[in-house]
C-alpha cells in the first residue's frame, strides 16, 4: 500500500499534466466493513466522486481509530484538497483534526459526529436517528387512524445510540395517540436471527392475534420477524403491520411482496451532500452549516419498491 502510494505520488509529481487533469482530490477514511449499509456507503461515495470528476483516495481502517488517524496524516502529507471522515469512535480526534486545520484541509464528518471543538471540522453530514423513529411512529399513527393497536417493538443493541434514539423518536411519534400502545419491547441486537427469536416469543407471550403492529429498529430484525410471523401461521403485513428503519434492499423486496408495510431510509448517500458543501466551500468559501441532516425518506407500498430493490441490490448491502 505504501509502495503504491509512493509510486502514485511520484507519478503525480513527474507529470504535472496529470495533476491538473484531476481538479480535486479527496481522501476518504472509512471505518471498515462492519455492515452491509457501510459497504453501500462506500460504493455510493465512490460513485458520487466519480460522477463529479473528483479523485477519491480511499482508506479502509478495519474498525481501528489508529488506522484512521494514520490515513488522515497520509492524506495531509499527500496534500489532498479535502478529507471525508466516518469516525469509528467519538473521542480522540482533536490532535489529528488540528493538523488538518493547520494544513488548511477541510474535514467533513460522515454519518457520525465527534467530540471535538466545532471549528476543527467543516461540517458533519448525518441522519437524525430520533427523527427516523418519529417518522415511523407518525406513519403508524396515521395508518391506524384511531383504531386500537397493540404494538411490539424490536430494539437495537441495548445501549447503542441508534437503539436509544429510534425508540425515543417512535415514542414521540405516537405520543398523544391513546389507541396505540407498546405492549412488549425487547432487544433483537439488530440481527435477523435475534429478530426472529424475539418475535417468536412475542407471538407466544401476547398471542399472535392480539398484536397489531411491529416496530423494528432496523430492517434486518423485521425480516427475521416476518419469518417468525409466517411460521406462526399469520400474514405479515396484513395481520401484523410492520414498520422498520434503514431501507435495505431486502426490506424493499418485502414491501413489494406485501409482507412489510413501511421502512424509513437511512441513506447511504452521505457523500452527496458532503461533496456539495465541499465544492461550494472550495469554490468561493461558502461556510456550510455545522450539521447537514440527510433526508429520512419513508417508503411504503405506494412506492415502486421492486425498482428500488433492483437499484440498491448492487450497492453492496
Amino acid at each position: 500500500m505504501t509502495l503504491k502510494a509512493t509510486l502514485l505520488a511520484s507519478v503525480l509529481v513527474l507529470s504535472p499534466g496529470a495533476l491538473l487533469a484531476a481538479d480535486m482530490t479527496i481522501g476518504f477514511s472509512q471505518i471498515g466493513s462492519e455492515s452491509g449499509w457501510r459497504a453501500a456507503e462506500t460504493t455510493v461515495t465512490r460513485q458520487e466522486a466519480e460522477s463529479r470528476g473528483i479523485e477519491l483516495k480511499f482508506a479502509d481502517a478495519q474498525q481501528k481509530q489508529e488506522n484512521q488517524i494514520k490515513a488522515i496524516r497520509g492524506f495531509i502529507a499527500q496534500g489532498v484538497d479535502a478529507i471525508l471522515l466516518a469516525p469509528v469512535v467519538a473521542t480522540g480526534w482533536d490532535e489529528v483534526l488540528e493538523e488538518a486545520k493547520d494544513a488548511e484541509i477541510p474535514v467533513v464528518l460522515l454519518d457520525r459526529t465527534v467530540d471535538a471543538p466545532e471549528d476543527l471540522y467543516l461540517t458533519a453530514v448525518t441522519s437524525d436517528l430520533v427523527h427516523e423513529g418519529r417518522v415511523a411512529g407518525e406513519w403508524l399513527a396515521e395508518e391506524m387512524a384511531g383504531e386500537d393497536c397493540r404494538i411490539v417493538e424490536l430494539q437495537g443493541t441495548t445501549g447503542s445510540s441508534p437503539a436509544i434514539d429510534r425508540k425515543k423518536g417512535f415514542e414521540e411519534g405516537i405520543a398523544g395517540q391513546d389507541n396505540l400502545e407498546i405492549v412488549r419491547s425487547q432487544t433483537g441486537d439488530f440481527t435477523r436471527a435475534q429478530g426472529k427469536v424475539v418475535m417468536e416469543s412475542f407471538l407466544k407471550a401476547e398471542g399472535g392475534d392480539t398484536i397489531c403492529a411491529l416496530y423494528a429498529h432496523n430492517d434486518d430484525m423485521a425480516v427475521g420477524a416476518i419469518q417468525a410471523i409466517k411460521e406462526a401461521g399469520l400474514k405479515p403485513g396484513e395481520d401484523i403491520k410492520i414498520v422498520a428503519i434503514d431501507a435495505v434492499p431486502d426490506a424493499h423486496l418485502a414491501i413489494a411482496n406485501g409482507e412489510m408495510n413501511a421502512t424509513i431510509e437511512l441513506t447511504p448517500n452521505m457523500a452527496g451532500p458532503a461533496l456539495d458543501a465541499l465544492e461550494a466551500y472550495l469554490a468561493n468559501g461558502t461556510e456550510p452549516a455545522k450539521w447537514i441532516q440527510t433526508e429520512s425518506k419513508l417508503y411504503t407500498a405506494a412506492d415502486d419498491n421492486q425498482a428500488v430493490y433492483e437499484e440498491k441490490k448492487n450497492l453492496g448491502y
Partner: peptide
C-alpha cells in the same frame, strides 16, 4: 442451521 433459519448467511453476527 442458523443460516437456514433466517434464509441468509450473516457473517458478522452468526
Amino acid at each position: 442451521i442458523v443460516a437456514a433459519d433466517i434464509k441468509g448467511a450473516d457473517a458478522n453476527n452468526a
